[in-house]
Amino acid sequence: MNEHSGFLVLIRRTARHRGAAVGMVLLALFLLAAVFAPVIAPCDPLAQNLDEGLSGPSVSHWLGQDKFGRDVLSRLIYGARLSLAVGLGTVGISLLIGLAAGSLAGFLGGGVDRIFTGACDILLAFPGILLAIGIAAVRGPSFGNVLFALSVLGWVGYARVIRAQVLSVKTREFVESARAVGSSPARLLLRHILPNAISPILVEATFGIARAIVAEAGLSFLGLGVAPPAASWGSMIGEGRHFLFIAPHLVTAPGAAILLTVMAFNFLGDGLRDALDVRQ
């Protein structure tokens, strides 16, 4: 079985999980909306019409207009870009750092591993979201700063999981055989150990994306996320909450979008976990 067909089998097995199938469909919809936002969005998400501020849903603006008279539906569609980009970007950066640090620590062992474990214990003692709020508050709101703030501690969890996996896999017979036939340490790690240690990380990453989207929403809600006038779902809720009593439509739509996306990633994670479970 080659790698390509292995991936297809994984997708097929994941799709058999009912929740994961729903999650995949939802994510596909959100991804399509994010990619084709300029085509799908009915209005310019930045175009202001101050005199129509806080108008409710109408034929021309299906989800109403925000304080600045901007079309909520268009901002929601464009917001999918930022929210998903933050989720995928944060997990991507964290995965890269976590994979490198965790696999080296597990593979090399000894002093490197002890230093790594100590450093992880210290970093995990920081409350992640508080550190992110501090970083975002000092550096100011921007997409880059949100990615930085969420990735600073985000990699530690992945690194610990991959270290544990590497520690377990590196003592297996096939690794010993590869070592016996003269494989270099780099080849051992990259070719034989990592591919067999990475499954739990995939599952963890799907949950991580969901966590990052919620964290970004939290930062944007506090005014520390993306800089205005860009729209992210969190910033839409943050701006809309001030008008909760007179224009509740401003928070319900982005709130529902966050709920559905996080739910979709969590369902997908559950499905992936089942699909990768060797007992099945």
């Binding site: 930045l46 202001q48 101050l50 304080k67 600045f68 508050a137 100011g140 709101p141 005014g223 800089a227 205005p228 006038p229």
Partner: peptide, 23 residues
């Protein structure tokens, strides 16, 4: 922040790009 967002949009109309830093 609301006022800054409106001024940002009004200056955009005359070709000035404004980066808002809300600190």
């Amino acid at each position: 922040r609301r006022v800054a967002t409106v001024i940002q949009d009004q200056l955009r109309q005359i070709g000035i790009s404004v980066d808002i830093q809300s600190l």
